[in-house]
Design a protein around this nucleic acid. Structure first.
Length: 465
RNA sequence: GCGGACGUAGCUCAGUGGUAGAGCAUCUGGUUGUGGUCCAGAUGGCCGUGGGUUCAAUCCCCAUCGUCCGCCCCA
């Protein structure tokens, strides 16, 4: 009775303490993702595959800081509206911060890295970077303020062979073949073709990049809207129609090349067609299947700095996701920092966005939370040392193994295994200790067998195959 | 930066001008050596925050903060 009274008293005191506690908003800030263990395991596997493909193709890992000097990040056209600044909580004056800002991509940090180490690098320099970047945009579905980007770039000193553009496309193909999320293809175009074609139509050079951005939206907004937008920009109606007709040219790669030959364009146009031909013939030399790489005159990429080959990757059947891996060739990586021409070609996967979209669309479904394959449980703490011993033995066999060491009822221990999706429980109890056996329980089928220690490894292998 | 919606239990959400409810989750028991189903019970809420209207506000009004969706832009 007194005990009950005391515990009531304690409860009252305890809840009083709780009610005095500050109430914290513990939800994730908007746009900052978190992954559950099951999802994170998928992400980790992906990272391993991605890293593997990058290294198979000769790319070197480089880790650059999450933070760079603000003026450097801005030097290559970084958008100040989207940049976060690094400052201490104490620095409450808006104008006083360290002068450092958080990276919004891996390209500018690469430019800085190359500039710092220009004389030590072996060119062409192939590097990969995987890690989070931050953008101060408004979050929405599949659109984050912190996200992982996986980047590769090839940087040439002065020159960079066009064949690299084909090698980059091959990396994309390998990546998505190994990630195994279904059919996909890489759309490839060359901006010189578009620019040359537009120039030939006497589109003013200041409008060309705007026209390019409008055309790039073709798939998203449709032909009528594209026409409307072109006219709105000041392009004459018949010219706009001509542009649209051009970008809508379709067929096999060979057919499109044939059509391109019939079109009379300027010097740049012809150069672009030649470049693309070289890229495609390199691709076929590497036995890249035709259905994986598709010449597509409508892709342009929004970003201004692309000057040649551009890539987009589409998951067949999920065109709505947009491009899941894109990039292109650019003339200048770090001229502002080095005074040298450093052309490059690269691609980037927005891993966070891609995974979150794939999870949402149920294209991939995370399996289980825990890597544990075998959970050792006991009917009583009396047999814990036997259980620990067996646990160590099973771990030694190469299985991911975990001992449940809390003093809880068997039912609770099984619950734990179920909740984590652990496929096998090994039960250790009085009679097993006496007989020198254990019970192996298959948590999926519910089937349970008693085995000797000699039979244990085989028994586990049977279930876990 | 612009536009729209929404903030009620750990989660998903119902609800009413008279200080609150469901399902799921959690815990306990039914079961001192066998889980996923079932049954019973319990825990859990300054109804986002501040102000206004009112005898009375979780509800109406205003502000603020936060979240989501879309646009811009991009991954």
């Amino acid at each position: 009775m007194i005990k009950i009274f005391m515990s009531k008293l304690f409860l009252i005191f305890f809840s009083a303490t709780i009610s005095m506690m500050k109430k914290y908003n513990i939800t994730c800030p908007s746009g900052f993702p978190e992954f559950s263990p099951a999802e994170e395991r998928v992400r980790q596997n992906w990272l391993a595959v991605i890293r593997g493909v990058f290294e198979k193709n000769g790319f070197l890992p480089v880790e650059t800081p999450l933070v760079e000097r603000e003026e450097n990040l801005l030097a290559k056209g970084g958008n100040p509206k989207e940049m976060y600044v690094l400052k201490r909580v104490q620095d409450d004056d808006d104008t006083s911060h360290s002068g450092n800002a958080l990276r919004f991509d891996h390209t500018v940090p690469l430019a800085l890295y190359v500039a710092r180490h220009l004389n030590e690098l072996a060119f062409p320099f192939r590097r990969y970077s995987i890690g989070p970047v931050l953008r101060g945009e408004r979050a929405q579905k599949g659109r984050f303020r912190q996200f992982d980007q996986c980047d590769i770039d090839m940087i040439g000193s002065g020159e960079l062979s066009l064949l690299n553009d084909a090698l980059v496309a091959v990396v994309i193909v390998q990546l998505f073949e190994q990630l195994n999320i279904g059919e996909f293809f890489v759309r490839i175009n060359n901006r010189k073709i578009l620019t040359g074609f537009f120039e030939n139509l006497n589109i003013k050079s200041k409008d060309i990049s705007a026209v390019m951005m409008i055309v790039d939206d073709l798939e998203k907004i449709g032909a009528t809207k594209v026409l409307e937008n072109l006219v709105k920009l000041g392009v004459k109606k018949d010219l706009a129609q001509e542009i649209l007709n051009f970008t809508e040219i379709s067929g096999t790669n060979e057919e499109i090349f044939k059509r391109l030959e019939q079109i009379k364009g300027g010097e740049l146009f012809t150069e672009g067609v030649q470049d693309l031909k070289e890229v495609f013939s390199a691709l076929s030399a590497m036995n890249v299947p035709e259905n994986r790489v598709k010449l597509d005159l409508s892709i342009a990429r929004g970003l201004d700095y692309y000057t040649g080959t551009v890539y987009e990757t589409i998951l067949t059947g999920y065109e709505g996701l947009g491009s899941i891996c894109s990039g292109g060739r650019y003339d200048d990586l770090a001229e502002v920092f080095t005074g040298k021409k450093l052309p490059g070609v690269g691609i980037s996967i927005g891993l966070t966005r891609l995974l979150s979209q794939l999870f949402d669309a149920k294209i991939i479904e995370p399996e289980r939370s825990s890597p544990t394959e075998v959970l050792i449980i006991t009917t009583s703490p009396d047999f814990m040392s036997n259980a620990l011993e067996i646990g160590a033995k099973i771990r030694g066999m190469g299985f991911c193994t975990e001992n449940y060491v809390e003093d809880k009822k068997l039912g609770k221990q099984f619950d734990y295994a179920n909740k984590l999706g652990i496929p096998v429980c090994v039960v250790m109890g009085e009679s097993e200790v006496e007989k020198g056996t254990v019970q192996i329980k298959n948590m999926t089928s519910g089937e349970q067998t008693e085995v000797t220690l000699e039979q244990l490894e085989k028994g586990l292998k049977n279930i876990l195959k």
